[in-house]
């Protein structure tokens, strides 16, 4: 190696790189490596603590969804046992909410004093519980903006009410801030606070994921970013923003074999935090991906910006908190 030339190159390159960095290149913090995996915040053993169903000519399922609460606690949808498990910020179990049926597949908290339970497939209703566990609202899902309840793809509790996303394309406000039925309002993408929305789209056939942010129903977004896949991006697992406008995007990267049976060779989730102008703040790779137990919500953004993941192993259900917080 020619040391002198190397030094010369460094002398020229370093100021250039510094200038480029100052010129507004996205800040890239370190990506969390596999050996930096977070410790479990919560573990629930199968059958003893939480239910699962192993399908036999039917779909298998574990807890379909979970949600972060405003106080830092968690809700776990244990629909197999007809209940919503409630945990305080220290992980201590609180009295559960009773579910009237086994087909609920999403859960949420609204305004810190209501719990939401969504059944898209059978009763096609959204239930709102108060903190005493009483049902205060029961809403039929099908209506203006929602033709097929089974095509609802996400539920968001915002300060202006509850929104349901359809086919990952548009969202319908179905409850107002007081959790009452309201005139249905529709926005493209996912509504976030501040009258804005996020729109995510897989970039086919390139293999990336494109994310835009801007005013709701604006003709043009304020900003757009394309996240390239380290492996081909198969799916956008999660996309949300906190109250400060910082965005969380989670993508499923998977490499499949090129010949029969086309099995998966490598896969993982990549979690990326962006600021409100899409500069990267933090990223991590999670080895915990969807199993054969059906699960609707795998990653949630906490009210303080923390990133939570619920995943399954043969032992049970784990919930971990990734350090996605930023100053």
């Amino acid at each position: 190696m020619n040391t002198r030339n190397t030094r010369k190159t460094l002398l020229v390159a370093c100021p250039l790189l510094l200038l480029l960095g100052l010129a507004g290149f996205p800040r890239i913090s370190h990506a969390v490596a596999a050996d930096d995996l977070p410790e479990p915040f919560l573990f629930l053993a199968w059958d003893a603590d939480v239910g699962r169903f192993l399908g036999d000519e039917a779909d298998s399922e574990g807890p379909k969804s979970f949600a972060t609460k405003a106080d830092g606690g968690l809700l776990i949808l244990d629909q197999v046992n007809l209940r919503i498990l409630d945990f305080d910020p220290a992980g201590r179990e609180l009295p559960a909410y009773a579910l009237p049926g086994p087909a609920f597949d999403d859960v949420g908290e609204a305004a810190g004093r209501f719990v939401l339970a969504l059944d898209r497939l059978v009763t096609r209703t959204l239930l709102v519980y108060d903190l005493d566990g009483s049902i205060v609202t029961e809403l039929d899902l099908v209506g203006h903006g929602i033709e097929h309840a089974g095509l609802i793809t996400a539920m968001f509790a915002r300060t202006d009410g509850v929104w349901l996303e359809v086919s990952h394309r548009h969202s319908v406000r179905v409850l107002d801030a007081a959790m009452g039925p309201c005139e249905r309002r529709i926005v493209l993408g996912r509504p976030i606070e501040g009258g804005r929305s996020l729109i995510g789209t897989l970039d086919r056939p390139a293999g990336g994921a494109r994310i835009s942010i801007g005013p709701r129903n604006a003709a043009k977004p304020d900003a757009t970013i394309t996240i390239p896949g380290e492996l081909p991006i198969r799916r956008i697992v999660a996309l949300d923003a906190d109250a400060k406008g910082r965005v969380l995007a989670v993508v499923h990267e998977a490499l499949f074999g090129g010949t029969t049976p086309f099995g998966v060779l490598d896969e993982r989730y990549r979690l990326i935090r962006l600021d409100n102008r899409f500069a990267e703040l933090w990223s991590a790779r999670s080895p915990w991906v969807l199993t054969e137990l059906d699960q609707r919500q795998e990653v949630r953004l906490g009210p303080d910006g923390g990133v939570w993941q619920m995943f399954f192993t043969w032992e049970g259900v784990f919930v971990v908190r990734w350090d996605g917080r930023t100053p």
């Binding site: 779909d59 399922e61 898209r120 497939l121 089974g150 990952h168 394309r169 897989l202 998977a254 969807l290």
Partner: peptide, 29 residues
Amino acid sequence: EDAFGEHDCVEAKGCSYGIVRNSRTFSSV
């Protein structure tokens, strides 16, 4: 495939569900 990579499907999902139309994803199994 929709914008996030899910598919519109019909499935006989199980005893509690019956035959349903469902936007869903699939694990690698």
